[in-house]
Computed example of a mutant assay.
Amino acid sequence: MSLYKRKDSPHWWIKLHVNGRRLQESTGTADRKRAQELHDKLKAELWEQSRLGVKPGYSWQQAVLRWLDDTEEKASRRDDINRLRWLHVHLEGVMLSEVDRYKLDAVISAKKGEGASNATINRHLAIVRSILRKAVHEWGWLDSMPKVRMLPEPKQRIRFLTKDEAERLLAELPAHLADMVRFSLETGLRQANVTGLLWNQLDLVRKVAWIHPDQAKARKAIAVPLSDVAVEIIRRQLGKHHTHVFSYRGQSVSRVNNHAWTKALGRAGIENFRWHDLRHTWASWHVQRGTPLHVLQELGGWESVEMVKRYAHLSGEHLAQYVTSMTGCPRRVVTNRLRSETKKG
């Protein structure tokens, strides 16, 4: 039977054999009539490809499955899958060659109708663009692709804490979270790298920790030099857990954006601040202290210096040599002139 149901799926499935070519896949719909239409369309295309030499056509679903195989190591895989599930509702049954400007506009409109921001919509469009690019340049499934234009995103300021705000927050947090926050401010590590930090990732004698490639967002190992404060924080955790550095009541910590965190922010009078902003705070403090951007890039494990340039405006020291007096008057001359005018007055 070429159209059938499986126990593990609510959708109708297709199984076709045309002149030696075999196709078996889900139709993506539980509607029998719609599934039959897709079946007939695919059968006709297979016949054309086999008998008339027409180039094979591929569905959006086939492209998604191959793209997932090709990007299996992506750090953002879970987010990608969630976005693809949303896109599936709007692109199911669509041939890859039919994903054009009109289809993309429909996707944008649907997402806007849910109240999504331009940034959220762009994350979905970026996946569509990535799939289409692979289909053209790597798989040979398409001869060309539509231009996927991203929506404008407002430039948002980087949220970071002042030293006073940081101390207020630390004073309001329970001890285990305060240690994790201060450690984050000392190292700039991402949330998952702090909660998942293991004892075998540390060398307290050399004062260094390391993040393995499979734990890093850029999939590159990161060496993390530890300050005296960071080492002191780690030493306070000795004996609390056998594998994880940070724990609470004998259990490793998996969630930090919890009730205690939210309440502490409120008591400290800090608004619009996420845990990830601790990393922004660490980077901002470094730049304000004069750390060169290429050094900050290496310390933070960023893939490119472009990702670090967003902090560049926080320090103008590298420009100081170019902003001497524009009038040609040395500072001493200006000062003497002011003194002279004061005496005359």
Rank of each mutant, 00 (worst) to 15 (best):
residue 119 A to F: 03
residue 90 H to Q: 08
residue 314 L to I: 06
residue 222 I to C: 02
residue 133 R to D: 15
residue 278 L to E: 02
residue 288 Q to C: 03
residue 181 V to T: 07
residue 81 I to M: 13
residue 324 T to I: 04
residue 146 P to R: 07
residue 149 R to W: 01
residue 315 S to R: 07
residue 327 T to F: 03
residue 260 A to G: 11
residue 58 Y to F: 14
residue 141 W to C: 08
residue 36 Q to H: 02
residue 124 H to C: 05
residue 4 Y to C: 00
residue 294 H to E: 12
residue 17 H to R: 14
residue 100 D to S: 14
residue 136 V to F: 11
residue 112 K to G: 12
residue 254 S to Q: 11
residue 272 N to K: 10
residue 116 A to S: 15
residue 284 S to E: 00
residue 23 L to T: 09
residue 44 A to T: 09
residue 64 V to T: 08
residue 90 H to K: 14
residue 85 R to M: 10
residue 45 E to I: 04
residue 159 R to V: 00
residue 269 G to F: 02
residue 227 S to G: 13
residue 164 D to W: 05
residue 211 I to W: 06
residue 294 H to Y: 15
residue 33 K to A: 15
residue 43 K to V: 06
residue 37 E to T: 13
residue 167 E to W: 14
residue 103 K to H: 07
residue 116 A to I: 04
residue 155 K to G: 11
residue 224 V to Y: 03
residue 204 L to K: 01
residue 25 E to Q: 12
residue 84 L to H: 07
residue 104 L to T: 04
residue 174 P to H: 12
residue 242 H to K: 02
residue 283 A to L: 06
residue 72 E to Q: 08
residue 336 N to D: 15
residue 62 Q to I: 01
residue 323 V to C: 05
residue 57 G to C: 09
residue 184 S to D: 05
residue 121 I to W: 01
residue 343 K to W: 07
residue 246 F to R: 10
residue 11 H to C: 15
residue 225 P to Y: 13
residue 192 A to Y: 00
residue 171 A to T: 03
residue 296 L to H: 01
residue 307 M to V: 08
residue 104 L to Y: 02
residue 316 G to H: 05
residue 295 V to T: 12
residue 275 W to Q: 10
residue 194 V to K: 10
residue 317 E to Y: 14
residue 329 C to A: 13
residue 57 G to A: 14
residue 275 W to H: 12
residue 213 P to K: 05
residue 143 D to R: 13
residue 63 A to P: 03
residue 273 F to K: 12
residue 313 H to V: 02
residue 289 R to I: 00
residue 139 W to K: 05
residue 217 K to H: 01
residue 205 V to Y: 02
residue 9 S to M: 06
residue 144 S to T: 07
residue 16 L to Y: 01
